[in-house]
Amino acid sequence: MSSLEYAVEFRAVSRTFRTGPEPVAALCEVSATFRRGTFTAVMGPSGSGKSTFLRCAAGLEQVDSGQVVVGGVELAKLGDKALTVLRREKIGFVFQSFNLLPSLTAAQNVALPLRLAGRRVGESEVREALAAVGLSGREGHRPSQLSGGQQQRVAIARALITRPAVLLADEPTGALDSKNGREVLRLLRAMADDTSRAVVMVTHDPAAAGYADQVVFLTDGRIVSVLEQPTVDQIAARMTSLETPTC
């Protein structure tokens, strides 16, 4: 399979932090591939390396060894300016805290990545992005005039406006009630069915992970298990086994 069919590749990636007296290995020779048109959930106990995994995929953390490849481009080979451009064009971000600018309208928030890139912003393009997340007619609303679920959908539209190769989501339903959470997860599921991109989501919630095609489990910086087309019960059981002390 051509590497271009993968939105993200981890090739024996290791990342160690040296902030205390002893180095802490956050990722240990992690290898994984994420094909376009797929939805992957990343799970694991606290301190398992999930956040570092996502930050390395986004090019926000430099790896000590191995390779991270996004859209066919190895991140380590890029200078700071080229890496910034790649993140802007190839990677979309969705966070637990929606990170919308309160003084801007929904349309202005969605258009922001294009403006930062110095690109011309077409009104129709922004309207289409908001329509894709079910927010037609809300273009002029500011975040304070939208529900939490609607704000997260604006954030998803903003992440997708550059047509990235991968959408990275960090606990995207963590600040939402169950109804709005389900709506956002269904939307992410639909986004992943677009064969031009992959969706990779970090979550602690088995019900959220149940929307994914596969679940990757991390423990102590290593991939210890992968479930394909899992049920929520299977995911919950696997998480319980990972969090149960062995001695």
Rank of each mutant, 00 (worst) to 15 (best):
M1G: 13
E5D: 12
E9I: 08
E9L: 08
R11G: 03
R11W: 04
R11L: 14
V13F: 06
V13M: 10
R15N: 08
F17E: 06
F17R: 10
R18N: 15
R18G: 15
R18S: 15
T19P: 05
G20M: 11
P21A: 15
E22P: 07
V24Q: 14
A25K: 14
A26P: 06
A26H: 12
A26K: 13
E29N: 14
V30I: 09
G37M: 10
T38N: 10
G44R: 00
P45E: 05
S46M: 08
S46Y: 10
S48L: 01
S48Y: 05
G49S: 00
K50I: 08
S51Q: 03
S51W: 01
S51F: 02
T52Q: 05
L54E: 03
R55H: 15
Q62D: 15
S65N: 10
V68R: 01
V69R: 08
V69W: 01
L75C: 12
L78N: 03
D80K: 12
K81F: 06
K81W: 12
A82M: 03
T84K: 02
V85I: 10
R87V: 05
R87Y: 06
R88G: 09
K90E: 14
K90L: 09
I91M: 07
I91K: 10
V94A: 06
F98V: 04
F98S: 05
L100E: 03
P102Q: 06
P102N: 04
L104M: 14
L104D: 10
A106P: 00
A107H: 01
N109E: 01
V110L: 02
V110A: 03
A111P: 10
L112N: 00
P113G: 00
L116H: 08
L116M: 12
G122H: 14
E123M: 12
S124Y: 13
E125R: 15
V126W: 13
L130Q: 08
A132C: 06
V133G: 06
V133N: 03
G134F: 05
S136K: 13
G137V: 11
R138F: 12
E139L: 02
G140T: 11
H141F: 09
Q145L: 08
Q152S: 05
R153H: 01
V154R: 01
I156L: 00
A157E: 00
T162I: 02
P164D: 01
L167E: 13
L167A: 13
A169L: 11
T173I: 08
A175D: 14
A175H: 14
S178T: 15
K179G: 10
V184C: 09
R186L: 14
L187T: 02
A190F: 05
D193F: 04
D194N: 13
A198N: 02
V199L: 00
V200I: 15
V202W: 04
V202A: 09
D205V: 11
P206F: 04
P206H: 06
A208R: 02
A208S: 12
G210N: 04
G210I: 02
Y211S: 02
D213V: 03
V215N: 05
D220P: 07
G221M: 04
R222D: 09
R222F: 07
I223W: 08
I223Q: 05
S225T: 01
L227H: 04
E228S: 15
V232G: 10
D233I: 07
R238H: 11
S241W: 04
S241T: 09
T244P: 08
P245G: 14
C247L: 14
C247M: 09
